[in-house]
């Protein structure tokens, strides 16, 4: 009898402890649960969106231990003890994160479905440039990196927007980068 038959498809459960938006959360999860489903279905943090569920669209982007990742392509059980920031942790309706305010001001969305992922990615992209992480369009790998439209476009290529708000997203991020400089 193969292990597959013995395991059958009975769910295997595990206790998972995460810090989400500064709050310690304990969950009892089927170990197949993605980090995205843990947030949306178990913690009811529905800001992060499920688009493709295959890491292609970026709607699920969260900031985990300081880095943006596709929350659909990782298991919650692999993030025992991780610090997770979702769109709900970046800002709230009466206390917008500067990137959220810039998206409003520059009209960086239309339907809004991809927007939480765009904003989490946008915040992390500016931090990556600040930290000196190069990109495909960085001309000199050994020189300081400037925030430019080309850098933003390349670094945001993992966030798809089917409404086509791309140019306004670049404007919003450029405005936030200018304010930070």
């Amino acid at each position: 009898m193969s292990r597959r038959d013995r395991v059958a498809d009975a769910p295997v459960m595990a206790k998972v402890g995460l810090t989400v938006n500064g709050q310690r959360r304990e969950l009892d999860l089927d170990i197949r649960t993605s980090l995205l489903d843990a947030a949306r279905e178990h913690l009811h943090l529905t800001g992060s969106k499920k688009g493709c569920d295959h890491g292609q669209c970026g709607a699920c982007t969260m900031i985990v231990d300081g880095r943006r990742i596709n929350a659909c392509l990782t298991l919650a059980v692999m993030h025992q003890g991780s610090e997770i920031t979702t769109i709900e942790g970046l800002g709230q309706p009466d206390n917008l994160h500067p990137m959220q305010a810039a998206f409003v001001k520059h009209d960086g969305y239309q339907c809004g479905y991809c927007t939480p992922g765009q904003i989490c990615s946008g915040v992390a992209v500016l931090a990556e440039i600040e930290a000196g992480i190069p990109s495909h369009v960085t001309a000199d790998l050994n020189a300081p990196i400037e925030v430019s439209a080309a850098e933003i476009r390349e670094r945001m290529s993992g966030n798809i927007c089917r409404c086509g708000a791309y140019s306004n997203i670049v404007e919003a991020m450029t405005a936030v980068a200018g304010r930070q400089a």
Binding site: R67, L141, N159
Partner: peptide, 23 residues
């Protein structure tokens, strides 16, 4: 790697997306 093995940095940066490269 950036200084002495630039071909490796360039190849990595040409692949996938920022989110995927982080993981």
């Amino acid at each position: 790697v950036r200084k002495d093995y630039g071909v490796l940095s360039r190849a990595l940066l040409a692949g996938a997306s920022g989110q995927l490269r982080n993981k």
